[in-house]
Design a protein around this nucleic acid. Sequence first.
DNA 1: TTTGCCGTCTTTTCGGTGTCAAGATAGATT
DNA 2: AATCTATCTTGACACCGAAAAGACGGCAAA
Lengths: 206, 206
Amino acid sequence: MATRRSGKSYHHGDLRAALIAAAETELIEKGVDAFSLRGAARRAGVSHAAPAHHFKDANALLDALAASGFERLTAAMRAEQVASEADKTAQLVAAGIGYVRFAETNRELLQLMFGMSRRTGDDPDLARHSEAAFSVLVNGVGNVRGRQAFASEEGWRDVAACWSMVHGYAQLAIAGKMEFVTGLAFDEQRSLIEDLMRRAMSERGA
Amino acid sequence: MATRRSGKSYHHGDLRAALIAAAETELIEKGVDAFSLRGAARRAGVSHAAPAHHFKDANALLDALAASGFERLTAAMRAEQVASEADKTAQLVAAGIGYVRFAETNRELLQLMFGMSRRTGDDPDLARHSEAAFSVLVNGVGNVRGRQAFASEEGWRDVAACWSMVHGYAQLAIAGKMEFVTGLAFDEQRSLIEDLMRRAMSERGA
DNA sequence: TTTGCCGTCTTTTCGGTGTCAAGATAGATT
DNA sequence: AATCTATCTTGACACCGAAAAGACGGCAAA
């Protein structure tokens, strides 16, 4: 049998991480629907019951994958921020662009992250990384409006507007429902997203 | 409920419609994940292979259900519009409120409608009703900006902004991620949504 | 070093699911 | 009336997630 994979030992060593990686390719290739725990196990080269020792559930594995997704989403937003101008609003816009960019290159993953599907939701890592991503947006708003904006409801409304706008656009773009407004051109979309973000902050120039 | 299946005829009569109805309660009770075609068939009081003669797929059945969802979404937006003031912007806002209201009372259904999960997507009815819902928003924007706004990209950007905002808010509210901004009070949320919609149209009063 | 423990992985088994194929039924057509 | 055809049932298959029980092997205590 496949007792030893490629001459290695009976025990895997770091199966947990390997399973998360395998789950991602399984997710990408098969889609959210057809994802299967057994498939992920196959990809990792272990038996179908092996994952049970690291994740109580199929959904628990996907929780961990979603947590990794939020971690990378945060990184994507920050990366776009540091590459942008120093202007505070521009930084907030950059975070939004990073958000959309990440969404478009990780469609299945984003759907997993924000859908209520296929998840338990009680993973502490997931909550932690999810809040970290959120805080990028909150900090961006805080830099523009000033910290005292969060004393009243004002600042939180700004956050709600930015998040709703960028998340809604990302979801709709992924679903292919935004083709009526802009071509596929890189800069066109960038300027559209900037427009949308500025609207959310009530800072539209024109 | 099971129209006449209690000891009655071998043929059902209107199984197609009965299956769609059964699928909705199955969807609501079991959730998107645990939805099963066999479960829907059971609810309709029919054998597990019966649906195959009306829907080629489990996903095709869910397509039909999603189509019905878009039909009712359109109706919900229109209903909220006629109940609102005559002011054009207020009408657009009302459509947005109808959208969110529908989303919150039909969570599972909305996720089905807008997720790329569990669906084939090539149902013509689905496309038709989906476009009808979209056109409510487009008409609302047209009434505010004037028809000529759609000659340039201007009007379409307004549509993109409104749709992204309202859809994003609905999705996030459903996922329980909007609790930081407003209580559960009815009027508070209403005023928040109005604020968001006006931002999307760059018409914020304050 | 030897012994025994115990976490890791495998095998087996179970109920459930979607889909296909073949048979039963009844309404419609000729 | 005889036949046709859409509809529904039964049965089978492969796959899935989960749980139970056994095989393996690292590791600490003796």
